[in-house]
Structure formats: structure tokens, C-alpha cells
């Protein structure tokens, strides 16, 4: 069946991302522009795999401080406290709100990690020109892209708390260095997913 499919790339056709105009590509070694809106055109996203890898690796690196360093620093009359994501989850779990603990665990630890793993899997498979389960991988990619922005939940909570709870000596909440790293992880994985060209999944099938 794949043999019968004709792709735009195979015909030397390019579609503009911005104005949607279809145009015929030149032949290698040149960056092409849309004849109508002058947007750069490309058959596949340029250096998609390499860029995706770069962002992914950066995300991997920052994932460590994001989980090790305190994400929130609370200081109140009863003393100062610095919480990492994990200590917050443990606190919630021990104080009985296991449902909340579960939500935070999934949103803040599992999802970013799964995203990282999913992207790694996709990149590896694309690089090795794997023909294994292309449809599943495409679905996986869609889930990764969809779920990306929801991981910013933690950052929102910390940002709102830090802005609201500034009652001088009584209580102060500040974002810790972990929040920065965590936010960076989320953004970097989003970039990584963005840079990844899902069409590459199907290319080996040609």
C-alpha cells in the first residue's frame, strides 16, 4: 500500500506553513521561499532531529536540578521551609491527601519524564529509520505535543503563591531554583516536540 502512496516530497512539491500555497521546490542545496508570502519553505523541517535532540538533552540535564532543588521556599512565623517537588508530594501523601499527591505526582514527575522518554523513543526510531508501528508513534507524538503545556501547572502554582503570599514577617513564599529548572524542562521538551517533524516517522516507509 505504501508503494502506491505519492508524497509531496517525492514530487518535489512544498507547502507554505503560513499561507498554505503549494509550490514546486528547486533541487537541493538551497533554502526556498514561498513565492507568495516569502516564508522559508522546506520539504522537511531542517535539522529537525538534531535540534530536537539538542532541546531534549538540555531538558534531560535540567530535569535533575528540577527534582533535586527546592521548588518553593516558604518562610513563616513557624520557621522557614524549602520544598522540592518530591517532598511536597510526600507531605501531601502523609497528610492524607493522597488524591492530590497523585495528581501532583502525575503532572509534575511522571508526565515530564514520560515526555522525555517518548521523545527519545521517537528520535531514536526516526534516526534508525525504523518502520515499527508508525501509526502508534504518530499517536504518541500527538499526545506528547498535546500534554506539553499542562506540565506548567506546578510553575503556575508556585508563581501565583509567590506573588500572593508576601505578608512580610508573617509568611513569605519564594520560588526556588528548582522552579526555574522545572520550567525550563517543560519549555525545552515543548520546543523539542515542536522541532520534531512527525513526517519523518513515515519517510522510512517510502
Amino acid at each position: 500500500m505504501s508503494d502506491t502512496l505519492v508524497t509531496a516530497a517525492a514530487r518535489g512539491l512544498l507547502s507554505c506553513h503560513v499561507c498554505g500555497l503549494l509550490s514546486r521546490g528547486g533541487h537541493g542545496g538551497q533554502t526556498l521561499h514561498c513565492p507568495r508570502c516569502s516564508t522559508p519553505l522546506h520539504v522537511r523541517k531542517p535539522d529537525s532531529v538534531a535540534r530536537s535532540w539538542a532541546f531534549l538533552i538540555a531538558a534531560y540535564i535540567l530535569y535533575i536540578p528540577a527534582n533535586v532543588l527546592p521548588i518553593m521556599e516558604t518562610s513563616s512565623l513557624f520557621g522557614a521551609q524549602a520544598d522540592t517537588i518530591m517532598s511536597g508530594i510526600l507531605y501531601l501523601w502523609h497528610s492524607g491527601s493522597w488524591d492530590l499527591a497523585l495528581v501532583v505526582f502525575i503532572a509534575s514527575i511522571m508526565v515530564p519524564l514520560l515526555k522525555l522518554i517518548a521523545l527519545t523513543l521517537l528520535l531514536f526510531s526516526v534516526q534508525r529509520r525504523s518502520t515499527w508501528q508508525p501509526l502508534q508513534r504518530a499517536k504518541l507524538y500527538r499526545v506528547v505535543e498535546l500534554v506539553g503545556r499542562w506540565s506548567m501547572l506546578d510553575i503556575y502554582v508556585v508563581a501565583i503563591l509567590a506573588a500572593l503570599v508576601q505578608i512580610g514577617a508573617l509568611a513569605t513564599i519564594n520560588a526556588g531554583p528548582g522552579a526555574l529548572a522545572f520550567g525550563a524542562v517543560v519549555v525545552l521538551t515543548m520546543f523539542s516536540a515542536m522541532e520534531f517533524d512527525p513526517r519523518l516517522i513515515w519517510d522510512p516507509l517510502q
Partner: peptide, 15 residues
């Protein structure tokens, strides 16, 4: 009928 894309020399350092 499809128009030709406008070519431009590739910038190598973006990688």
C-alpha cells in the same frame, strides 16, 4: 500551475 519556490543560498551555521 504550481509556482516555483524562490531559492536562496543555505546558511550552514544554523546547525
Amino acid at each position: 500551475d504550481i509556482p516555483e519556490a524562490v531559492p536562496e543560498p543555505r546558511k550552514r551555521f544554523s546547525l
